[in-house]
Amino acid sequence: MAIEPKTTREHILSLYGHISGVKKNLKHVHEDVENLGGKIDKIYWVLLTVAGTAVLFVLERMFG
């Protein structure tokens, strides 16, 4: 059971503790987003290669 802050100062100090905790947690989220960005880039290049191959296949059929 949490202790309820009674004064404005106690509320501010309580909020400050939550905000500093969020900042610490955001560091891990940022690292996860960075790692996810690399995976998305790989998927992007694979899809771009597949689309390019399909276009070349169609062009070869049209002119070949």
Rank of each mutant, 00 (worst) to 15 (best):
L13S: 12
R9Y: 06
K39F: 01
L13V: 09
V22Q: 11
G38H: 10
V29P: 11
T49A: 15
A54Q: 01
N35D: 15
D32K: 05
L15V: 12
A54T: 07
H28K: 07
K6R: 14
G21A: 09
L26S: 07
L36E: 06
L47W: 04
K27E: 12
D41P: 01
K39E: 11
D41Q: 09
P5A: 10
Y16M: 07
M1E: 06
L36W: 01
F57R: 04
A2E: 05
W45H: 15
L59C: 09
P5R: 06
H30V: 05
L15I: 14
H30Q: 11
A51N: 04
E31W: 00
Y16P: 00
A2F: 01
V50W: 02
G17N: 09
E60T: 05
K42N: 03
K23Y: 08
M62N: 07
I3A: 10
L13N: 15
R9L: 13
E4L: 04
K42A: 09
I19A: 14
T49F: 10
L59H: 03
V29H: 13
K23L: 13
V22F: 12
G38V: 01
S20R: 10
K42S: 10
I3T: 14
H18C: 00
I19W: 11
Y44T: 13
E31N: 03
A51H: 04
N25T: 03
V33S: 02
T8W: 03
N25E: 13
L36S: 06
G64C: 08
T8M: 09
K42T: 08
D41A: 12
I12G: 04
I40M: 14
N25V: 01
F63T: 15
E4M: 02
V58Y: 11
T53F: 09
V22C: 10
P5Y: 07
W45G: 01
V33N: 06
W45N: 14
P5V: 05
L15P: 01
L56C: 14
E60V: 04
A2Q: 02
L36Y: 03
V22G: 10
A51G: 03
K42L: 05
I43P: 00
L59V: 14
T53L: 12
V22P: 01
E4W: 00
L59S: 08
H18D: 10
T8Y: 07
E60L: 05
V58Q: 07
V46E: 13
I43H: 03
L48A: 15
K6N: 13
I19N: 08
G21S: 15
Y44E: 15
A51C: 08
F63D: 12
V22H: 11
D32F: 02
D41C: 03
W45T: 10
R9P: 00
R9W: 04
M62V: 11
R9I: 08
L26P: 02
I40V: 15
V55T: 14
L48S: 12
I19V: 15
F57W: 08
V50K: 11
L36K: 02
S20E: 14
I12D: 03
T53G: 14
K24Q: 13
H18L: 08
V55S: 11
K39R: 05
L56V: 08
E60C: 02
K39Q: 05
G17V: 01
K23W: 05
H28E: 08
I3V: 12
W45R: 14
V29W: 07
